[in-house]
Design a protein around this nucleic acid. Structure first.
Length: 381
DNA sequence: CGGCTTTGACCAGCGC
DNA sequence: GCGCTGGTCAAAGCCG
């Protein structure tokens, strides 16, 4: 575009250049025009980027809105049929979000904020992390009661921990387990159920995708079901961060795919890249929240990827399969260059071009080339 | 030297 | 109660 304009400006006066001293004037004029066109070009670029941002935001908003409508109708259904698990409110805290899952949760949060004398309220409200909370609500009074019980037991435990004189390795472990249990209870508030897991199956040459977090390997095992080693990582961005992940090759016949399982809630702010990851997985985990397991409703949330939900072994698990594109039939000619498919509960549209695993691509293969290399599972070829 | 990985040992949960 | 298995620990080694 600029080039054409430039060419057309070379002889702005019809190519007539009678005198040599006019040449400089013409050159200056041409330069000025080029500069002007360049500025316009920049403005257009800026406008385009603004439009793209708006488009992404709008898409995210519509997606959230429709999802909320969907959840509302589901809630109505569940109330009508009075399932066994009615009255159980599952809330998720994944990524940076200020979306209230339900009015009940808002009330609970208000109560908890009051209990903490509103210290660090904003911090908690905007807490980052992969988290999962299951709370039982029968009525407002019982909620209040259960919460008070939770705090009381935790206070007692903390008190015991302070008084306890740790004498042995076993005691150390016990104390650590109690601390972890505290964290678990704090986030789940229902110890009988294990933490929600989000599995991401990614076709990748390297087992360790850079999801924005810093991980420290603390163990490796070969499970019987899968002879290939499974590596255990702990989040090392904070000394007490309870988040863990497991990385395992999916199978001998599928050596290029790795299953990464995330579990727990970060107790520290996450970098931008990790926020994107958490936002993506949050959408996956929100499937559990909706209580839906039908493929139709899952396709509704993830029209471009294969996914599944399981609750085996008391671990509610969402599996996102990035190795298997799942294109919707009703969108046969969906533009490949279309911008983000956002499952995000994040308040920021994803405009990052960092080399991280992202859920923003419509094509499942697309992120594969963007994995960065960190560590390797030993025992692989 | 500090941080990370490796790896054998230990522990708890679960099924029989 | 016992054995199996998955998850975790921690000492040793490696590396920048």
């Amino acid at each position: 575009m600029i080039k054409e304009e430039t060419n057309s400006c070379v002889h702005p006066f019809g190519g007539v250049m009678a005198e040599p001293d006019h040449k400089e004037v013409e050159l200056d004029a041409a330069k000025a025009k080029v500069e002007k066109v360049r500025e316009e070009n920049e403005k257009l670029k800026l406008l385009l980027s603004t439009i793209l941002t708006d488009y992404n935001s709008l898409q995210m908003y519509v997606s959230n809105f429709v999802r909320q409508q969907h959840e509302a109708s589901k809630e109505l259904d569940s109330n009508e049929y009075d399932h066994d698990d009615s009255g159980v409110d599952i809330s998720l805290r994944l990524g940076r979000s200020e979306i209230k899952i339900s009015k009940k949760e808002e009330e609970v949060e208000k109560i908890s904020l009051d209990n903490e004398n509103k210290v660090g309220s904003e911090k908690k409200r905007y807490a980052l992390g992969l988290g999962f909370r299951i709370q039982s609500f029968e009525d407002a009074n019982s909620t209040d009661h259960s919460m008070k019980l939770g705090y009381t037991s935790r206070d007692v435990k903390n008190g015991n921990a302070e008084d306890k004189c740790v004498l042995s390795k076993k005691d150390l472990k016990t104390a650590r387990n109690e601390d972890q249990q505290d964290v678990l209870e704090e986030h789940n508030e229902q110890p009988s159920l294990k933490k929600t897991r989000v599995c991401v199956k990614a076709p990748c040459e390297d087992p360790s995708i850079n999801d924005g977090c810093q991980w420290r390997k603390y163990g490796q095992k070969t499970a019987k079901a899968n002879p290939l080693p499974r590596a255990y990582y702990r989040c090392s961005m904070s000394s007490n961060c309870p988040v863990r992940k497991q990385v395992q090759r999916c199978g001998e016949d599928d050596t290029s795919a790795y299953m990464t399982t995330y579990e727990g809630t970060h107790d520290h702010p996450l970098p931008m890249e990790a926020t994107h990851m958490a936002a993506g997985t949050s959408a996956a985990a929100s499937l559990l929240q909706s209580g839906s397991s039908s493929s139709a409703s899952l396709s509704y949330y993830f029209p471009f990827h294969h996914f599944s939900v399981s609750t085996t072994n008391a671990h509610p698990t969402v599996t996102l399969d990035l190795t298997r594109p799942n294109y919707p039939n009703h969108l046969p000619n969906y533009p490949l260059s279309s911008s983000s498919l956002s499952f995000s509960s994040s308040d920021r549209p994803s405009m990052s071009n960092s080399r991280t695993l992202s859920f923003n691509s419509l094509i499942s293969q697309a992120p594969l080339n963007t994995y960065s290399h960190q560590t390797k599972l030993s025992g692989q070829p």
